[in-house]
């Protein structure tokens, strides 16, 4: 049942199931995250991508085997998992709106040697606004702050959930560039709806549907195949693809709750 994990993966997920508000949103999901480059986690709205990420971190109730850098982590509490070297950029940024930008970054520092310079260079906007309350930033600036919180530590893996959601095109490319820069030194598991960004960043893809893995492979193979894109993501091809079922719409609502 459990295929041995390839030695070059940083995170292996085996038979992960997760519940939100008593409802099964992730079911028996297994995949590997390679130790280098960007791996994109794709799928339609509400198929359990965010829940998969939260399940890995232990932020929601879950079952399954999780191995991070050779260590089993499914029994650890969230903060212990993160301390093993995981940076998390949540959906909707989740910056602390009543804390200043500097305080948000300071809170995220896990060691005595935070990489302030790196973050300052990547996001000069944040330096200017260090004393400003995070709640008063624009969406793009909040996203940079959220990324900055993850990049300020030396991590062994980043979990990045929809970093370009709701951002203006110019900001999207800034965020993508920052991720590309980060990906040179740390592997990233990226949830992303924008296929343009996926094409730019990802080498590998994992596709979820109805809480299960339905495809794994090279990003290029998937993105160059219109029928595959259509079948798994339903993003093009007019109205021939089935409307999202009621069940997935409900779980999407709860995923956000």
């Amino acid at each position: 049942m459990n295929a041995p994990a390839p030695s070059d993966s940083i995170l292996t997920v085996r038979n992960l199931s997760a519940k939100v508000a008593g409802q099964q949103v992730v079911e028996d999901v297994s995949f590997d995250v390679p130790a280098t480059g960007v791996t994109a986690l794709l799928g339609r709205n509400g198929v359990g991508k965010t829940s998969t990420i939260k399940g890995i971190l232990g932020l929601i109730e879950r079952k399954g085997e999780l191995t991070f850098a050779g260590e089993r982590i499914e029994r650890l509490r969230t903060h212990k998992i993160v301390q093993r070297g995981i940076g998390y950029v949540p959906e909707d940024r989740e910056v602390f709106s009543k804390l200043s930008v500097a305080e948000n970054l300071r809170l995220a520092e896990r060691t005595s040697k935070p990489r302030r310079e790196l973050v300052d260079n990547l996001f000069p906007d944040l330096v200017e606004r260090a004393a400003q309350k995070a709640g008063t930033l624009s969406g793009g600036q909040q996203q940079m702050l959220s990324l900055g919180r993850a990049l300020i530590n030396e991590n062994r893996l980043l979990l990045v959930d929809e970093p370009t959601k709701g951002l203006a095109p110019i900001i999207v490319s800034q965020v993508a560039d920052a991720l590309a820069e980060a990906a040179k030194t740390v592997p990233i598991l990226l949830v992303e709806q924008n296929l343009q960004v996926v094409r730019q960043l990802a080498e590998d893809v994992i596709v979820l549907d109805g809480g299960r893995v339905v495809y794994t492979g090279k990003a290029k193979t998937l993105l160059d195949d219109e029928t595959l894109i259509h079948r798994f993501l339903g993003v093009s091809g007019g109205d021939s693809h089935p409307a999202p079922s009621v069940a997935s719409a409900t779980s999407a609502q709860e995923e956000r709750a």
Binding site: L57, L59, R77, T78, H79, V82, Q83, Y88, P90, E94, F96, S97, K98, L99, E103, R106, L107, A108, R110, R149, N153
Partner: peptide, 24 residues
């Protein structure tokens, strides 16, 4: 203080504090 920072952040969003690696 750092603890004060953690408390203020925790009041706003407890689970995000743990997701930053802090034992809340």
């Amino acid at each position: 203080t750092r603890f004060g920072l953690i408390i203020r952040a925790g009041v706003e969003n407890r689970s995000m504090v743990t997701a930053l690696g802090i034992d809340v």
